[in-house]
Amino acid sequence: MLLNDEVQLLRQVPYFSRIDPCKLKLLAFTSARVCYHPGETIFRCGDASDSAYVIIQGTVELSVTSPSGENVVGTATSNSIIGEMCLLGDAPRLAHARAVTDVEALRIGKDCFLKVMADNPRMGIEVSRALAETLRDQAARVEKRPVGLLEPAH
């Protein structure tokens, strides 16, 4: 897959949908294309956060470890971004990401991500909006199933 295809792909990620394609090309260029085999770890819970991953192809499983064992908290497939929240704060990874199938991803370094965001106020707004939406979703879920957040289902 070529740089131009990656740009097309990035545009489908909500964060980046309204950003000038030219800037997206820069972002894609400064990112690395990485691939993982099924079962390989992309990042571990507690690792330092240094990059976000846009999944180009394949499925990634996110899980957290609790005293009662490992719980899958979600999966991510192509066109989605994982690990981005940790880039905004300096928090370590909250979840463990593992490739379920063969995965191809675009690794966006923290510095690049923040720099592109700083250069594009538009993107800042998009990120804020995405954050807000996530929060709203979670709040809604908390209302529905308050216990779920504190103690994830088995």
Partner: peptide, 19 residues
Amino acid sequence: DNLVEIFAGLPPDHPFYQQ
């Protein structure tokens, strides 16, 4: 062509040049 498209307009001290 591609490089110019990608990098044109970036200030000279931009960290992306390290790439």
